[in-house]
Simulated scan of single mutants.
Amino acid sequence: MSNLRLIPRLDIKGPNLIKGIRLEGLRVVGDPQEFALRYYEAGADELIYMDIVASLYGRNNLAAIIKRAADQVFIPITVGGGIRSVDDVREMLRSGADKVAINTAAIARPALISEVSRRFGSQAMVLSIEAKQVALGKWEAYTDNGRERTGFDVVEWAARGVALGAGEVLVTSVDQEGTRKGFDVKLIRAVSEAVTVPVIASGGMGHVDHMVAVAQSGLAAAVSMASVVHYGYIPLEQIRAAAIHAKLPVRKI
Rank of each mutant, 00 (worst) to 15 (best):
I244T: 09
D184L: 07
T150H: 11
G167F: 06
K247E: 10
G137H: 06
P32C: 00
G25Y: 08
I188N: 04
G206R: 01
D144C: 13
S55I: 10
D144L: 11
H245E: 14
V134W: 10
I200T: 14
V28F: 11
Y231F: 15
T172N: 15
A70T: 05
Y142S: 09
G178C: 09
W157Q: 15
V250P: 08
V174S: 09
G165A: 03
P8V: 00
A64D: 15
A108R: 13
N145R: 13
N145L: 09
R149P: 15
L17G: 02
I253D: 13
K19H: 04
G14C: 07
F120S: 04
E115R: 13
I65Q: 11
A141F: 10
A141E: 04
M205Q: 07
Q33P: 03
V214M: 05
A158Y: 03
L236T: 01
V191C: 08
V73D: 00
D175T: 06
A222S: 10
I244G: 05
K67V: 07
G204P: 10
V185A: 06
I18E: 07
D144E: 14
R27Q: 14
R38W: 04
M1A: 13
L127Q: 04
A44K: 02
N3A: 15
V134D: 09
S122K: 01
K13V: 03
V229A: 04
A36V: 01
G161S: 04
I113W: 12
K13D: 14
Y39F: 12
P32H: 01
M205E: 11
S128Y: 03
F183V: 09
R109V: 00
I12C: 11
E115G: 13
R109I: 00
Q238V: 14
M225P: 11
P249R: 12
R84G: 06
I7R: 02
V185M: 09
G137E: 07
G204H: 00
D144H: 15
D144F: 12
G121K: 06
V212R: 13
H210F: 01
L23N: 10
L10V: 01
I77E: 05
E91P: 00
D71L: 14
E177D: 15
E34D: 15
E130G: 06
G146M: 03
V228E: 01
V223I: 14
V29K: 03
D98G: 06
E115C: 09
G203K: 08
P198I: 13
E91A: 12
S85Q: 07
G96H: 01
V223T: 03
S117R: 02
V53K: 12
Q72N: 08
